[in-house]
Simulated assay, not measured.
Amino acid sequence: MLRNVTGLVLDPKVEESLSGLADEMGLTKPDLIRTILSDWLVANAYLPVPYALDEESAVDGTA
């Protein structure tokens, strides 16, 4: 099992985009990558949703 692997090689355009987004969001690049990866795994049902969904709540109809 790999943990805390450093030296992830990314395409220069991806590297530049991640660096800019991390600066914009006030995160470190590793924190941003962890967030993106975690969100993707949840969205694609590889990880459970980290909070309970309340289907009884009223919504205002905006997205």
Rank of each mutant, 00 (worst) to 15 (best):
V9E: 14
S17Q: 07
M25P: 00
D23G: 03
I33V: 15
L18D: 01
R34N: 10
R34W: 00
D60E: 15
V49S: 00
N44H: 12
N4P: 01
M1T: 08
L37F: 08
T6G: 07
L21G: 02
L32I: 04
L10F: 05
E15G: 08
A52H: 09
E24N: 09
N4Y: 13
E56N: 15
E56Y: 09
V49N: 09
A43K: 02
S19W: 04
A52I: 08
V5H: 07
S38V: 01
P30T: 10
M1W: 05
V5M: 11
K29E: 09
V9I: 12
P12T: 00
P12N: 05
L53E: 10
D23F: 05
K29P: 02
N4R: 15
G26R: 04
L27R: 09
W40Y: 14
D60Y: 13
V14Y: 01
E16S: 12
S19F: 09
E24A: 11
A22M: 07
V59P: 04
G26F: 04
L27V: 04
E15A: 15
M1C: 07
L10Q: 05
A43H: 00
Y51P: 00
P30Y: 09
L53K: 15
K29S: 03
V59A: 15
I33Y: 01
E24R: 14
V9T: 11
N4G: 14
E55H: 14
V49H: 06
V9F: 05
S17W: 00
E56H: 14
T6P: 01
P12C: 02
Y46Q: 10
E55I: 07
G61S: 11
S19E: 13
L18E: 05
R3K: 12
E55Y: 15
L8H: 10
P30F: 08
G20Y: 03
E15N: 11
D39S: 14
S57K: 15
V9P: 02
Y46P: 03
I33P: 00
E55Q: 09
A52T: 12
P12E: 11
D23A: 14
M1Y: 07
K29H: 02
A43F: 02
T35C: 05
E16K: 06
L21H: 06
E16V: 05
A45F: 11
K29M: 08
T62F: 13
W40I: 03
D54F: 09
L47C: 00
M1P: 10
L32V: 03
I36G: 07
A63G: 13
V9H: 07
L37G: 08
V5W: 07
A22N: 00
T6N: 03
I36K: 02
L8K: 03
G7F: 08
A45R: 12
V49C: 06
L32W: 04
S19M: 09
M25E: 13
D23R: 15
